[in-house]
Write a protein that binds this DNA or RNA. Structure first.
Length: 682
RNA sequence: GGCGAGAUAGCUCAGGUGGUUAGAGCGCAGCAUUCAUAAUGCUGAGGUCGUGAGUUCAAGUCUCACUCUCGCUACCA
């Protein structure tokens, strides 16, 4: 493999409407940081780029809800996340932001170039506009009467009642969901990127060419999309918050976030280059640059299909060499979730464990979800700290330093004569270094971190086998050699752990009284000169007590409980209806006679229900939580005068009433004691 | 249902182009050892490699079917 002249490494731009948790870190930022630190140690030319993604609808909605400007929101989270990365030792060359003027200009120019080259498909359409809110309405924000079934709460994209997919214009009496007013039809123009054409022309072929060097999950995901055929994708939106579309007569149109965000990598590189007096174009337009995108799996399509399409369409840019996307990290067996507050937040961790940043980095790296989703547990955090960092690595360093102090007054002793075993040990150290390079360059970080730990194991074994403490009386010369080599190993450790444990590496360099060393020295036998004075022995890591683990797990559960309580019963009340409206509903007590799962569906169960009036068939979405056996014979509430509706080819004549809690758990509304079939519920 | 990824020791995971007794770390058991935060080193137990067929002299490794898990998507709510 040819070594590229320079690297451009990007990490996904975090969306600036919330804080970061360890899932984000394990997915993209820590692997990227490890990779970049390694490249820097090797003296390679690398630009490490990240920043906040600050546009898009969710931010505007949040701003509206909190009654502040979108800029206030993004300012807040930009600052929090920027600091979070710094605290974790994730050292971007620049942490930029997409609300910066330079980004607006870069994205704008990019669009303009494609526009002028005629790359876009231009479509003019009529869309609904809410005059009171002064904005165009997304399909989902329009409600009206369904033309095919007459349901009056159908959405602009689909009728929930009959399942017909709709366009907003088909709705009878459309109403804006934002203001409740009647929206006006207005002409609006949008631009589309012809992904379908690119698929034919080069994109699919390009993806295929990476079958062997891209990760299986990444390649597979791309193929899945290509198999389903790509479609033109709109690159603009009618919205106020974002990068204005740089074409005449396009008031209140902005670039769609997914178009604008990846260009953020480019503008960030420009900002960095300006600051450092570098040429940004070399990093983006020179074939001798290797571009690597680190992302989570949710971002694969954008980085492997859409962004490359944009770059290629522009014409001057290189395409990524690799997109090593990770899968997701779970926490204590459950999916990380911001809304359920099931997460370890970066800012909280940093506050509570300022001296354990590297332990987190180590635990995460050892558990990176590289092939499949993986789990983070506090118990594992403790085990890895106590059994690996403390017991293996910290212990070896301490042993080497204590022995040096004891026998040589903290001076690195001179090598007298190397035995075969010494040579084998040195060879092994060099092999570790080489293995490490191989793994890191192939993005196998969890293996890499284990191999780095092997350097500590090697040291422990070396001391155990040579037993310098029982030798000093008889053969001080031998002890000198052994301790010299042990200290060389310690110095090697300070090099090879730098990508994973930068704070520890720094600490270890202080112990050894040395400055930062080049990667190439790792595994060498002459890193430290004889006579060099090392510092007093200290511990590299502290143990984590059981109590700490228990506290953290308890804290997690506590936070989740609180969140759940907060959210309990949040479903807002519907509009008032008249008593007459209510009496039109006919709800009865029915008894389920038969039940079977509807084949080829996940949730649907077909029920035969005796309503007292008749026996009828009802399809209900309960199969995920109930088995046919447990519902059979059960008395339930059933709405009997609903229009029948065909679901999966079965005519459903009514609806079983269920209560659904915040977790989505369903409960039957059954009479407290058995009662007459057909009894009226009122 | 469609598409994708995964299923290998108690746990977390490695196992290019098929080839002798299937590996690592942690955990567990025994032994050794004391320089070290009872840390370390050695040895060992433990696996029908999801299930069932097939290709082959030979399959964890290739083919097909099936089961289960996760994700996207559809349907449903």
């Amino acid at each position: 493999m040819k070594e590229p002249g320079r690297y451009l490494v990007t990490a996904a731009l975090p969306y600036a409407n919330g804080p970061l948790h360890i899932g984000h870190i394990a997915g993209a930022y820590l692997p990227a940081d490890i990779y970049v630190r390694y490249l820097r140690l090797k003296g390679r030319d690398v630009a490490f780029i990240c920043g906040s993604d600050e546009h898009g609808v969710p931010i505007t909605l949040r701003a509206r809800k909190e009654g502040i400007s979108p800029q206030k929101i993004v300012d807040k989270y930009h600052a929090i996340n920027k600091k979070g990365f710094e605290d974790l030792g994730i050292e971007f060359d620049i942490y930029h932001r997409t609300s910066a003027p330079l980004h607006h200009k870069t994205a704008s120019d990019f669009f303009r170039k494609l526009y002028e080259d005629g790359e876009f498909i231009e479509k003019e359409e009529e869309q609904f506009f809410d005059e009171q809110e002064n904005q165009f309405l997304a399909d989902r924000y329009i409600v009206g009467t369904c033309p095919s079934c007459g349901y009056d709460q159908a959405y602009g994209d689909q009728c929930e009642q009959c399942g017909t997919s709709l366009s907003p214009k088909e709705l009878i009496n459309p109403v804006s969901a934002l203001s409740g007013n009647k929206p006006q039809l207005r002409k609006t123009k949008h631009w589309y990127l012809p992904l379908d054409r690119y698929q034919e022309e080069w994109l699919e072929e390009w993806i295929d060419s990476h079958q062997n060097d891209w990760k299986a999950n990444v390649y597979g995901q791309c193929k899945s999309w290509l198999n389903q055929k790509l479609h033109p994708r709109a690159v603009t939106r009618d919205l106020e918050w974002g990068v204005p579309v740089p074409v005449e007569d396009t008031d209140s149109k902005v670039l769609y976030v997914w178009f604008d965000a990846p260009i953020g990598y480019i503008s960030a590189t420009r900002a960095w280059a300006e600051e450092k007096g570098k040429d940004w174009e070399k990093y983006w337009k020179d074939e001798d640059t290797s571009m690597i995108h680190f992302i989570g799996k949710d971002n694969i399509v954008f980085h492997c299909l859409i962004f490359p399409s944009m770059l290629k369409a522009h014409g001057e840019y290189i395409l990524p060499d690799n997109v090593p996307a990770n899968e997701f990290l779970n926490l204590e067996g459950d999916k990380l979730s911001t809304s359920r507050n099931w997460a370890v937040w970066v800012n909280e961790f940093v506050e509570q464990f300022p001296d354990k940043i590297d332990v987190l980095r180590y635990t995460l790296a050892a558990n990176f979800p590289e092939q499949k989703d993986n789990d983070f547990t506090w118990k594992d955090f403790q085990n890895r700290n106590n059994n690996e960092l403390v017991a293996v690595m910290g212990n070896f360093i301490n042993r080497a330093l204590v022995l040096t102090k004891k026998y040589f007054n903290r001076q690195v002793p001179e090598v007298k004569e190397l035995t075969d075993y010494d040579r084998v040990t040195l060879e092994r150290a060099r092999a570790i270094k080489n293995d490490l390079e191989d793994r890191i360059e192939h993005y196998k970080f969890r293996e890499a971190v284990k191999i780095a730990m092997d350097m500590g194991r090697l040291g422990n074994k070396y001391l155990a086998d040579t037993e310098p403490w029982s030798l000093y009386e008889k053969d001080p010369g031998r002890v000198a050699t052994v301790l010299n080599l042990s200290l060389q190993l310690a110095a090697s450790i300070s090099i090879v752990i730098e990508p994973f444990l930068p704070f520890t590496a720094e600490k270890l360099r202080k112990f050894l009284n040395i400055s930062k060393l080049d990667w190439g020295l790792a595994g060498q036998s002459n890193i430290l000169e004889a006579g060099h004075e090392v510092n007093k022995p200290q511990h590299l890591f502290q143990k984590v007590e059981d109590q700490v683990v228990e506290q953290q797990v308890e804290k997690l559960q506590e936070a989740r409980r609180k969140k759940e309580q907060q959210e309990r019963g949040v479903e807002p009340a519907k509009e008032n209806i008249s008593f007459d409206d209510f009496t039109r509903l006919d709800i009865r007590v029915g008894e389920i006679l038969e039940a079977e799962k509807v084949p080829k569906t996940r949730k649907l169960m077909k029920l035969k229900v005796d309503t007292g009036l008749d026996t009828r068939t009802v399809v209900a979405g309960i199969a995920e939580q109930f088995s046919p056996e447990e519902v059979r014979g059960r008395q339930v509430s059933i709405a009997v005068n609903l229009d029948p509706r065909r679901i999966k080819g079965i005519e459903s004549q009514g609806m079983i009433l269920m209560a659904e809690d915040a977790e989505g758990r369903l409960t039957f509304l059954s009479p407290g004691t058995k009662t007459q079939r057909g009894a009226v519920v009122k």
